[in-house]
């Protein structure tokens, strides 16, 4: 499979002082589902923003389809259209992403930027609203939406540009279980439709549901391990080390148990 995103020895420091990423190298292939997992503050969002060319690494290289993405090349109109039209980014906080007056304007923004004709842009927006079941919200200002609706609009606003790669930052964070299920189904359907998905999350159940290739970030901001979801989720010692699972005590009637807990996979008792 063709390599679509390639990172080589990426380092990132905030204000030349605080390290956010240390020597990250990874390859993402076309049509792959890739999950970057790690505890809070490990640099997942920073890594995703580097992949989208939103921030530039302190050192290291980013390649998209073999072309190096640089601050300078992103200033060129030709390359910018090529890159931004193919790589979409869904922010964790939908509020910051939605800046147009209404839901319809939001969905039209991307296609109009791509200079797609207004009729086609409208068609895309309406098809998207139908798919996401938000047709009734068409004229509503985005600040009048619920958390789940905002997330749908945020994803829709990126999808109307028809990107090849979709970068999603904590997509299921703060959503109810019904909305989470909807999102998982949507991501799988989009992947089947040929989209490459890159997700930053600490939700291990999401990783399992997507059966993604996983890159584990350590608290030292390094890529600790990459592998299949099965291999990574099996590796208790690794998940404990990177603080994605922990030991806790809970009670079954009068008996207290101490066991490894991730709210998902390792809810397992020693005696069972």
């Amino acid at each position: 499979m063709e390599k679509i995103i390639c990172l080589e020895n990426i380092n990132y420091h905030y204000h030349d002082a605080i390290s956010a990423l240390t020597d990250i190298s990874l390859e993402i292939k076309r049509g792959e589902r890739f999950a970057i997992i790690g505890a809070n503050g490990t640099g997942k969002t920073t890594l995703l923003q580097i992949m989208n060319g939103l921030i530039s690494p302190s050192s290291g290289k980013l390649f998209f389809k073999g072309d190096e993405v640089l601050k300078q090349t992103l200033k060129d109109k030709g390359f910018l259209r090529f890159f931004r039209g193919r790589v979409g980014y869904v922010f964790q906080d939908s509020d910051v992403q939605l800046f147009c007056p209404t839901v319809l304007d939001e969905l039209l923004y991307g296609p109009l930027q791509l200079e797609i004709g207004e009729t086609e842009a409208m068609d895309r927006a309406f098809e998207m609203m139908k798919m996401l079941n938000i047709e009734h919200l068409k004229e509503r200002p985005t600040y009048m939406l619920s958390g789940g609706e905002k997330k749908k609009v945020a994803i829709g606003s990126v999808l109307t540009m028809n990107p090849e790669v979709l970068l999603l930052d904590e997509p299921t964070n703060g959503l109810d279980s019904k909305m989470q299920c909807f999102l998982v189904e949507l991501m799988l359907a989009l992947n089947e439709a040929g989209k490459t998905l890159v997700i930053a999350t600490h939700d291990l159940s999401l990783v399992d549901e997507l059966q993604a290739t996983v890159g584990v970030l350590s608290e030292e901001h390094r890529m600790e391990k990459t592998g299949s979801a099965i291999d990574i989720l099996k590796d208790e010692e690794l998940l404990l080390r990177v603080n994605l699972i922990h030991e806790h005590i809970h009670r079954h009637r009068d008996i207290a148990h101490r066991h490894i807990h991730s709210h998902y996979l390792f809810h397992r008792h020693e005696n069972s």
Binding site: K77, V96, F99
Partner: peptide
């Protein structure tokens, strides 16, 4: 931080001047 994120969000969907 919010202002910076808003700027990045627009940047991620901006294809022209």
């Amino acid at each position: 931080k919010t202002v910076e994120d808003m700027h990045l969000a627009k940047k991620s969907r901006l294809l022209r001047e």
